[in-house]
């Protein structure tokens, strides 16, 4: 169970998050949609303290911290039980696909190298990259790089994977392969929070859709509730814009 309560965050006195509550039950996929600048990515980054919230509570599993008072050790514990997939993949460019996935296992998890290698090969197989283990990011397509990013997150055996616009940097023809991997994870019961503009993914995979605007969650519910029986005018306007 992942939850945030009353999250507030400002950048240079400009409020970006104005008190956000969101709960993600184990095994569910929560998709956050909304116009750019609405605070979706910031909210995601507040969960693992890449941005420190100005106020609020973050709960990951049995660890619950007051964001303002979180110690360094607590932040590390939260980060070690979550994983993130980034829009720009953020792969180590001087390491191979295998090396990218092994790095966290060896350095942070302190797994012995043979075990880390086995685990890395296993998750890279899962994302369909068994034949690319020795390739450097510069030798991989965007879709392949992002799948390495997903494998890297998966390898750490997190309680939740946070996806920050995972397909936004990809050429349109490469989006499908990444979404397919994510759908696979969802089917296996991985807990996921996904910030995305892919409405069809939200419709198909989400257990819950949250629509954000202007630093708040305006509306949330099942995909059918949010997309078909929209209650809020702002959600309706946004959906109309992206449908075009």
């Amino acid at each position: 169970m992942i939850a945030v309560r009353g999250i507030e965050k400002s950048f240079h006195r400009t409020p970006v998050l104005k008190g956000v509550d969101l709960a993600v039950p184990k095994g569910e996929v929560v998709v956050i949609v909304g116009p750019s600048g609405s605070g979706k990515s910031t909210l995601l980054r507040c969960v693992n303290f890449l941005e420190r919230p100005d106020a609020g509570r973050v709960t990951v599993g049995d660890l619950s911290v007051d964001a303002r008072r979180a110690t360094r050790a607590e932040v590390l514990r939260i980060r070690r039980s979550t994983a993130m997939v980034f829009q720009q993949y953020n792969l180590f460019r001087n390491r191979t696909a295998l090396g990218n996935v092994m790095e966290g296992l060896v350095q942070v998890r302190r797994l012995p190298e043979p075990e880390a290698r086995r685990r890395a090969e296993e998750v890279l197989a899962k994302v369909g990259l068994s034949d690319r283990l020795g390739h450097y990011p510069s030798q991989l397509s965007g879709g392949q790089q992002q799948r390495v990013g997903i494998a890297r997150a998966l390898a750490m055996d997190p309680q939740v994977i946070l996806f920050d616009e995972p397909t936004s940097a990809l050429d349109p023809e490469l989006v499908g392969e990444v979404l397919a991997v994510m759908k696979g994870l969802a089917r296996e019961g991985m807990t996921m929070v996904v910030v995305t503009h892919e409405m069809s993914f939200a419709r198909e995979v989400a257990s819950k859709v949250a629509f954000m605007d202007d630093g708040r969650i305006v509306e949330e519910g099942t995909p059918a509730e949010v997309f078909e029986r929209t209650r809020e005018e702002r959600t309706r306007q946004f959906l109309q814009r992206v449908r075009r």
Partner: peptide
């Protein structure tokens, strides 16, 4: 060095020392 790589390491729970030496 791309700050995104530092964030990737942070998101795994790497310590500052690990980030310096390994990233």
């Amino acid at each position: 060095v791309d700050h995104g790589l530092v964030e990737a390491a942070q998101s795994m729970g790497a310590s500052p020392r690990q980030i310096v030496w390994k990233v």
